[in-house]
Design a protein around this nucleic acid. Structure first.
Lengths: 191, 191
DNA sequence: GATTTCGTGTGACGTTGTCATACGAACTAC
DNA sequence: GTAGTTCGTATGACAACGTCACACGAAATC
């Protein structure tokens, strides 16, 4: 890492890593450019050499999370040992689980309208992977409609869990069970 | 409005009103206590006489929106001219429509875990009203589970619409159609 | 070896949330 | 009616933040 381009790329990675850690540990308020710079071992102004403004850095975090999710779903798709419907259910559970494990990243992904084209592309890759699973499970006919319904359902379950509006005490049902009911209700009607 | 208590209450109302307008017009970033004070005709420090901190004021906005939604659903419930399933569908559509009409208020309601007990109570009132509609449509048995699933579905549809991940061009289906599919799939199985 | 490039450090500015303090008018008690 | 109290409001101040302008210095280019 002697060359300048290499150290600059390393700094950029360190910035993204620091921002991710700060977000996971302390939520969005903890992600200040000063703190990010400090944790990455650079000054408070250094991020501006790599990102135009703070939101640009946050968008990068969202893209990375989208991409990681796309990889997870892709791996699920390549697992031939399961029934299509079970793989579909696993993919929806992966989204809900992402919300549980990294709530602030999840909020970042869906928080604000994705105006950034790169972010939209990353989200599209997840949707493509997911849509293929839906097609395997319910057939090509109406896969789009069912896919939209399933994604909405899973996203709603994740969202209500995150905002604390899906207490198991109150509704007598867990998020995982809701995902199963969702798949059953949608894919069960289309044999 | 001569007495002091009256003018203070009027100021408080003006602050809430100003904050609501600023939120609707310019999103969360536009809601600064200075701007709220200015629009309400008071100084930047005046809000601290009525709310402990900024988040307290925002929580009040969320509660008011929850209460307005509860009223809407209650009115729907008292409309005896419709089939139970249609009223249920209307209630879910009301949630989605709230997201469309007041996206920033919607984000406020579900944005952060509702730690405030008053806010949780307001949300509970909506859930009670909604649960009664579900019971009318699918019976008392498993109404809780189906209610949770329907709420999740509607919330997910609203959320994906707000974040731009439910483009009709891509999925060949509108949010309203998804709500209908959701009610059909859930309430249709329980005659 | 001289010059250019560019990632980085630093100072500065405006804005924001929040607190301490001071003012003044409405309320209370005599 | 007057004196004292209460409390909503106005103002000054402070730290933290995002962001820009500028300067420095080492790597890259010739």
């Amino acid at each position: 890492m002697g060359t300048r381009a290499e150290t600059a790329a390393a700094t950029r990675r360190a910035l993204v890593r620091a921002a991710t850690e700060l977000l996971d540990e302390g939520g969005p308020d903890a992600v200040t450019l000063r703190a990010v710079g400090a944790r990455a071992g650079v000054s408070r102004g250094a991020p501006y050499g790599h990102f135009t403004h703070k939101e640009h850095l946050l968008t990068r975090l969202a893209i990375d999370t989208w991409d990681a999710l796309a990889d997870d779903v892709r791996r699920l798709r390549e697992d031939d040992g399961r029934e299509p419907r079970e793989r579909l259910e696993q993919a929806l559970l992966a989204l809900v689980e992402l919300g549980r494990r990294h709530p602030h990243r999840y909020a970042l992904m869906f928080g604000t309208p994705a105006d950034d084209p790169e972010s939209a592309a990353a989200a599209s890759r997840v949707e493509e992977q997911f849509l293929a699973l839906v097609t395997d499970a319910v057939g090509e006919q109406d896969a789009l409609r069912y896919g939209a319904l399933l994604m909405s359902g899973a996203h709603g379950i994740a969202g209500l869990e995150l905002s604390g509006h899906l207490s198991e005490d109150k509704w007598q049902v867990s998020g995982d069970e809701l995902v199963r009911m969702l798949v059953e209700g949608v894919a069960g009607n289309v044999p």
